[in-house]
Amino acid sequence: MTPAPRSSTPVPGGRSMLQFMRRHPAHLLAQGFGSGLSPIMPGTSGTLFGWASFVALTTAWPAWFSPLHWAWIIVAGFAVGTWACGKTGRDMGVSDHGSMVWDEIIAFWLVMLFVMPAGFGTQLGAFVLFRFFDMVKPPPIKYFDRHVKGGFGVMWDDIVAAFYTLLVIALWRAGAS
């Protein structure tokens, strides 16, 4: 995965990353509404955005952001993200550019869907586990990351990291009871 350049770094067409993101709705979405433009650990920034947005939306509008609605949002977000990340990757000339973090956002929303309701410590643990699996990429995540390309590939390896995260949490909860 290519690290995300600073927002002033030019991309194809001589634009800065910020100008590039604003050029098309797919770029805005794929780059996590700007969270992926962080010069330091953009994937972690995207995951933090996913965590904060999940908690904020669920707290502010619990009837609209119920578990069933979140499930539909995540499915739709995966489908739209496949298109947005594919287009953004093609426009950048890098299929899975580090600034594309919509995959982290959707995958962490999936983790939060199954973890919540939970206290801050459990949420933080889920965050750390997800970032671990997303960065280390144990098999088969690494296989998907290297061999499944395009928007689907960008999105899919993070869904597998979310599955690993949820598996570890389920095993921890089963052992704690």
Rank of each mutant, 00 (worst) to 15 (best):
T2Q: 14
T2C: 11
P3D: 13
P3S: 09
P3F: 12
P3T: 10
R6C: 12
S7L: 10
S7N: 12
S8M: 09
S8R: 09
V11E: 01
V11D: 01
M17G: 14
F20W: 03
M21R: 04
M21P: 00
R22W: 06
R22Q: 14
R23D: 11
R23T: 12
H24E: 08
A26T: 13
H27T: 02
G32A: 07
G34N: 09
S35W: 01
G36Q: 08
S38P: 05
S38D: 03
P39L: 05
P39M: 08
P39F: 01
I40K: 12
G43C: 00
G43K: 06
T44M: 08
S45Y: 10
S45A: 15
T47Q: 04
T47D: 04
T47I: 04
T47S: 11
L48K: 07
L48I: 12
A52K: 09
F54E: 09
F54D: 04
V55I: 14
V55Q: 08
A56H: 10
T59G: 02
T59K: 08
A60Y: 14
P62H: 00
P62S: 02
W64F: 15
F65V: 10
S66Y: 08
S66A: 12
S66C: 07
I74E: 02
I74N: 01
A76M: 12
F78N: 02
F78T: 05
A79Y: 08
G81Q: 02
G81W: 04
T82E: 00
T82H: 08
A84P: 03
A84V: 00
A84S: 08
A84H: 04
K87S: 13
T88G: 05
G89R: 05
G89D: 07
R90Q: 13
M92E: 03
G93R: 12
G93T: 03
V94R: 10
V94C: 10
V94H: 04
H97W: 06
S99E: 08
S99F: 04
V101C: 00
V101P: 06
W102H: 06
I106R: 09
I106E: 07
F108C: 00
L110T: 08
M112P: 02
M112I: 05
M112F: 01
L113F: 00
L113I: 00
F114A: 09
P117C: 07
A118G: 06
G121S: 11
G121Y: 12
Q123R: 15
Q123A: 15
L124S: 03
G125T: 11
F130V: 02
F130E: 06
R131C: 08
R131K: 12
R131Y: 13
D134C: 13
D134R: 11
V136N: 04
V136T: 10
K137L: 03
P139A: 14
P140W: 06
P140G: 06
I141T: 05
I141A: 01
K142E: 11
Y143C: 09
Y143H: 14
Y143N: 13
F144Y: 13
F144R: 01
D145L: 10
R146T: 11
H147Y: 13
K149T: 14
G150H: 14
V154Q: 09
V154W: 04
M155L: 13
M155V: 13
W156C: 09
D157S: 07
D157W: 10
I159K: 10
V160F: 10
V160K: 05
A161M: 00
A162T: 00
F163H: 05
Y164H: 02
T165K: 02
L166C: 04
L166P: 03
L167E: 11
V168R: 01
W172Q: 05
W172L: 14
S177T: 13
